[in-house]
């Protein structure tokens, strides 16, 4: 109401008085809007993985007389990579804490640790896939293995893309330091990383644990 009756000059003056704070808030709103946009992307990714899980569950028995998951999946490597990814989700959270403290070195260090853990995860996954192909289960062997490689591979691809992004962000942080823009970028990559961990938990539970039980 006060807004409606104030003269243009008054409104302008009022705006001018709060200019510093107002501008900062606008900027902040922009950044939080971008974070929300990223959140919406994650929701679409939830649906993407949902379709792949549905496919996997429907085709889990269609091995066409070939090898089954229970025969070929090796749990030792998977257990190690699961704990690696769980830990990396934790370390990406520590990176955000360091960022909130304004500690650039700490932020870069913990992001780098997260990236190294992520790279080990991808390395183990590639090894596992090579082992499976060597044992005679590739993406064309049967409907089961098609669903398996597409689901697990899509997750692995997400982790790999996240790694490239994280390395680029570390370079940018070392040049520009902690600004509102780099802060938002760190928050969304950490959201992305936690999200990948959640997806992996379901891959681990549904594909591996249920596959070998």
């Amino acid at each position: 109401m006060a807004h409606a009756v104030s003269t243009p000059a008054g409104a302008h003056g009022g705006h001018g008085a709060g200019h510093g704070g107002g501008h900062h808030d606008d900027h902040h709103d922009q950044e939080s809007l971008k974070t929300f946009g990223f959140w919406l992307f994650l929701i679409t990714d939830v649906i993407l993985f949902g379709t792949l899980f549905a496919t996997y569950v429907v085709l889990r028995l269609n091995t066409d007389g070939g090898p089954t998951g229970a025969e070929l999946l090796e749990m030792n490597g998977i257990i190690i990579s699961t704990f690696i990814l769980l830990t990396s989700s934790f370390t990406s959270g520590i990176a955000v804490l360091e960022m909130n403290k304004g500690n650039k070195r700490g932020l870069i260090l913990w992001l780098a640790i997260t990236a190294v853990l992520g790279a080990s995860f991808v390395f183990l996954e590639v090894n596992e896939f090579m082992h499976l192909v060597h044992e005679g289960a590739n993406i064309g062997t049967s409907a089961y293995w098609s669903a398996f490689f597409v689901l697990v591979g899509t997750h692995g691809l997400h982790v790999s893309v996240g790694l490239v992004w994280m390395v680029a962000l570390i370079l940018q942080l070392s040049r520009r330091g902690i600004t509102p823009v780099t802060k938002r970028k760190v928050s969304i990559i950490s959201l992305y990383w936690h999200f990948l961990d959640v997806v992996w938990i379901f891959v681990f539970s549904i594909v591996y644990l249920m596959g070998v039980m």
Partner: peptide, 15 residues
């Protein structure tokens, strides 16, 4: 998130 989960459950349970 809830919207996404509703779609997810529909796809998975429906399939």
């Amino acid at each position: 998130l809830i919207f996404g989960l509703v779609i997810l459950l529909t796809i998975v349970a429906g399939s």
